[in-house]
Each structure stands twice: as structure tokens, then as C-alpha cells.
């Protein structure tokens, strides 16, 4: 008897996650030839309906083909974090968002956008379950 509500809840969570992931996958991130590898985690932030904000630790791991000055810019949060003459850059930061945000990796020297990606805010909406009355047959 517990299996069904549990499966419904898990199902809704998975559905929510997949929906958000699908949105993420549709974004065509621009990537410069100067970047050999980039990992941005997380790709989405899922908040509970009751919470207006979503807090998470952003971890950007960037490998460049050559040393340069790079910055991570999140305009919506007024964040600009720069590193000088690096071939490997790592940006880690606690973020709190209440809307989708755009993460740009730019070349500080010429403001060229090396990489751009959206970080989506998803909302977990648990299905409102009703208590079963369990009258059975009134005999």
C-alpha cells in the first residue's frame, strides 16, 4: 500500500528533474576554441515550492589551451570573478538564485565570451495527495 504513493512521489520528482534537464539540454551553449574542457555543476537547481530561493554551490572547472586572464560573470547576480594568467581555472561559489541565471566565461583582455550557459531554476511540485476515506462496504 505504501508503494503507490511512494512511486507517485518519486515519479513526480523524476519528471520534474527530467523536465528541467530537457530544458537545459535544449540550450545551445557557445564554446570557444580557446577552451579545451569545461565542467559546470550543477546544471540545474531544484527548489521546493515553499522556498522562494534556491541555494547551491557552483563549481566551474575550466581548462584552457593557453594561459590567459579569464573571468566568470553572472550578470543577474552582479558577480564577476577573475583569475590572471591561468591555463586551469576553478571557480567555486555559494549562490542563491530565484530565477534562471546566465553564466559567462570571458576573456578579460578583450571581453570575448569563451563560454556561455544557462543555469536553470526548477521547482519541485509534489502532487497533492488526498487522504483515502476507507469506508469500504458499509455493511
Amino acid at each position: 500500500m505504501t508503494l503507490k504513493p511512494l512511486s507517485i512521489r518519486l515519479g513526480s520528482l523524476i519528471f520534474c528533474y527530467l523536465s528541467a534537464f530537457s530544458i537545459q539540454a535544449q540550450d545551445k551553449s557557445t564554446i570557444s576554441a580557446d577552451i579545451s574542457e569545461i565542467d559546470i555543476l550543477p546544471e540545474i537547481c531544484v527548489r521546493n515550492k515553499r522556498n522562494s530561493q534556491c541555494q547551491f554551490k557552483l563549481d566551474v572547472n575550466l581548462h584552457l589551451n593557453s594561459k590567459m586572464d579569464v573571468c566568470m560573470v553572472i550578470k543577474e547576480l552582479r558577480i564577476r570573478h577573475c583569475l590572471t594568467q591561468v591555463e586551469h581555472a576553478r571557480f567555486q561559489r555559494m549562490l542563491t538564485i530565484n530565477e534562471d541565471v546566465k553564466i559567462d566565461i570571458i576573456n578579460r583582455d578583450n571581453n570575448e565570451v569563451l563560454y556561455s550557459s544557462m543555469l536553470h531554476l526548477a521547482e519541485f511540485k509534489p502532487i497533492a495527495l488526498r487522504p483515502r476515506r476507507n469506508f469500504g462496504w458499509i455493511l
Binding site: 500500500m1 505504501t2 504513493p5 511512494l6 507517485i8 502532487i127 497533492a128 495527495l129 488526498r130 487522504p131 483515502r132 476507507n134 455493511l139
Partner: peptide, 23 residues
């Protein structure tokens, strides 16, 4: 206990029992 007794709106349940019984 309440977890056992929750139902998703829009759900139709049907159970058929074969055996013996009555009033």
C-alpha cells in the same frame, strides 16, 4: 500510517476479490 491511506486525485482504483463471504 497516513502514507498508506493517501491517494492521488484523479485516481481510479479497482480491486476484485474471489473467495467466500457474505452477510
Amino acid at each position: 500510517n497516513s502514507e498508506q491511506a493517501l491517494v492521488k486525485p484523479g485516481t481510479f482504483d479497482f480491486r476484485l476479490t474471489a473467495g467466500i463471504g457474505g452477510i
